[in-house]
Design a protein around this nucleic acid. Structure first.
Lengths: 133, 133
DNA sequence: AGCAAAGCTGACGTTTACGTAAACGGAACG
DNA sequence: CGTTCCGTTTACGTAAACGTCAGCTTTGCT
């Protein structure tokens, strides 16, 4: 059942992070590896969370923001206590992400425009070289 | 022509940043305000750059990465020297941004799914309340 | 002239997200 | 049985991106 739990090195290889990072995330209560003796064992749930953590980071969320989001993904039927509060957090994050998507699309458009300008300039320079030859 | 140049306070109000931030960006050569005596005057170009800086930050780029991108946006016909190098930088950034967009769309999809689950749970809880009454 | 507000320049402090080094424990191998 | 990896803890270090505070001009009122 090496498929069910992974040690720290396997995690590092799988997600391209350092051991320090995983221990840091555990300290910050983003991951909850169990122990086999003294060694950490990361469950499938930990791997799902780590994937979300790394994704959140790429979107510019802080680890603390990510920690709150993780609650939504990993709430099971037992603890519906603060579900509606968590739901509201998620709503805000969704709004953030959709706004970010819209802005990203705009930025991509603008960058493409600039690159078209740059490409034209480069073509012009290449032409001048040919003229000189 | 207060429309052409803005002082530091007007900039702060317009972009919701602190004076410290603007001075910091100047020190990092992201902005190039001129001086009227000792005071900074921010041009239209500075404002365009600041807009791009803040956008870049929201997408998780570092100030240093942003600084390199700014070169593309503000290269004029005079200095075509390193144009092709800058163009390559831009290509990488464009690829990054499109990858980010794809991932963001996936993440939005997943978050919506989770929220649907959460909404169902909430409805269920509300129903139980009614049953009890 | 006087004085407060706005800006400026250092310079040190702070938070986030880890990196890095020291010192120790278990296991695996020749 | 020594040593060589892994992995662990504890602790200090660091880069980025500002915050904050002190002390000094400059400017705008009154």
């Amino acid at each position: 059942m090496t498929i069910e739990t992974m040690n720290i090195r396997e995690m590092c290889d799988a997600f391209d992070v350092t051991p320090r990072t995983l221990r840091f995330y555990e300290a910050k209560e983003l991951l909850f590896p169990t122990r086999e003796g003294q060694k950490r064992l990361f469950s499938k749930r930990d791997r799902a969370r780590l994937k979300l953590i790394l994704r959140g980071k790429r979107f510019g969320f802080s680890l603390e923001e990510i920690r709150q989001l993780l609650d939504l993904y990993h709430m099971d039927d037992g603890q519906e206590a603060q579900l509606s509060k968590t739901y509201e957090t998620a709503e805000r994050h969704l709004a953030d992400m959709e706004a970010q998507k819209a802005e990203l699309e705009e930025a991509i458009g603008e960058l493409k425009q600039q690159m078209a300008w740059g490409a034209a300039k480069l073509a012009e320079l290449g032409q001048r070289k040919n003229d000189a030859a």
